[in-house]
Amino acid sequence: MSWLSKALSSSIGRKIIMAVTGLFLCSFLVIHLVGNLQLFKNDGGAAFNIYSHFMGTNPVIRTIEWVLVAGFVFHIYESIMLTSRNKTARGAQGYAVNHNEQNSPWQSRNMGLLGTIILIFLLVHLYNFFYRARFGELDPDINNNDDLYTLVVSSFQQWWYVVLYVLAQAALAFHLIHGFKSAFQTLGLTHRKYTPFITYFGYAFSIIVCAGFAAMPLYFFFKQF
């Protein structure tokens, strides 16, 4: 193995990949949220469909999409490698009594569980919107763009879909409440002057972004009545 692959497969190296991909995925969340805010525009979905047509066809966006795929793949791959390493390190014989709820926050100990919920959501979400927008047959809207808006609205009128979305956003919020500040710690980016700000910012970021995503299914679900 070269020095680089050795460094990246060490315990700290893997964590560095987790942190870099995790923060990259956070930047994706911001773009995705801001773009999707157009769902709230009262124009029958015209603006949202123009936006999604652009995102689905622009060559620059289509290229960056592959970077995003790689970000998810590496993040998930490293999470599996780290989790299995950590399970082995804990040893076969566990504690009969362990009160780790008294020394650490729940979300910090359950990043794998939270990540798995996010992954299940992601697969459903990609199949329903991404796959059908890219490879399926959607009816054209008034501007002759694929009418993804109508698909989104009709999906969000089903209660189980709304429940899945809101739960997944709650999981993502907890994932990021730990993950955002943790990534800076992993990268060694701590300083007495800035770390308190990063901690508060990460908290606010997690809640605002996830509440923003959760607002969409809730809005369309309650609008139908």
């Binding site: 060490s10 315990s11 700290i12 893997r14 780290l82 950590n86 390190a89």
Partner: peptide, 20 residues
């Protein structure tokens, strides 16, 4: 760090139980 990994200790998830 190489020795730490070789001994079979886990990686840090920044959970904080250790410092507590």
């Amino acid at each position: 760090v190489a020795q730490m990994d070789k001994e079979g200790f886990g990686a840090c998830s920044n959970i904080g139980s250790c410092a507590a």
